[in-house]
């Protein structure tokens, strides 16, 4: 099967919610080191609400999943990560066309990442969630170009995101709270990049 259906998208967020719940304390500790110690709590609260909303008004289409998730994140998380993650999924939803092929998914995801970069005024290397999401998007695009299957494409995206998150460690932050620390932000993984890697890891597990 080459197309991703509504259940796939729901499963994506369910798995992301599970991973974030599992790693909540780790994310908060990463945020404690260079931020304000709330990223795990923020995202866990947001994704719990996302799952609740999806259960309460079951979506009919992938677009509805993304639109619902994006809106819920914006409406329930607050902080920097709420609007930023919310915008990724909202924009992705806007860009997505049915039926969802890997190429369609990749193109829409890229639009989500671009919206994030625009909203956060962040570029690769600023030590933010962009550092995980942009490489993931690139990995998806390359997979499409190379005709790779969905499962492998998602796995490559997850790997790219995980590597991107790791790569934030030696960087000095230029955006978000961590930037206040100047050189002291060096040596710590960005919490948003870490949570973004979880989103992509979740995607890999739900691949058809």
């Amino acid at each position: 099967m080459d197309t991703l259906d509504t259940a796939c998208f729901v499963a994506w967020f369910e798995e992301a919610a599970r991973l974030v719940r599992r790693d909540r304390d780790r994310l908060t500790e990463l945020d404690a080191a260079i931020g304000d110690a709330d990223h795990g709590t923020n995202l866990d609260r947001g994704l719990t609400e996302v799952i609740k909303a999806l259960a309460e008004s079951p979506p009919d289409t992938p677009v509805q999943v993304l639109t619902s998730a994006g809106a819920t994140l914006i409406r329930r998380v607050g902080g920097a990560s709420g609007p930023l993650y919310g915008s990724v999924f909202r924009q992705m939803g806007k860009a997505l066309r049915a039926p969802v092929t890997l190429a369609g998914f990749s193109a829409a995801f890229e639009e989500g990442v671009v919206a994030l970069e625009r909203l956060g005024k962040a570029a690769l290397g600023d030590k933010t969630m962009v550092d995980a999401l942009a490489p993931a998007s690139r990995a998806l695009a390359l997979a499409v170009r190379d005709g790779v299957g969905v499962r492998e494409a998602f796995e490559q995206a997850a790997r790219a995101a995980a590597e991107g998150a790791q790569a934030t460690i030696p960087l000095q932050a230029r955006k978000g709270r961590a930037s206040y620390l100047g050189e002291r932000s060096i040596g710590h993984e960005d919490p948003g990049a870490a949570s973004a890697a979880l989103f992509m890891a979740a995607l890999a597990t739900v691949a058809v």
Binding site: T28, A33, D36, A37, T41, R184
Partner: peptide
């Protein structure tokens, strides 16, 4: 939620130039 200090600061030290969110 975290339940423990955001950063550890020994008895001998202070943090200069802090904000209001427990950032170091």
């Amino acid at each position: 939620h975290a339940g423990k200090p955001t950063f550890d600061l020994p008895e001998t030290d202070v943090e200069l130039g802090i904000g209001i969110h427990g950032e170091p």
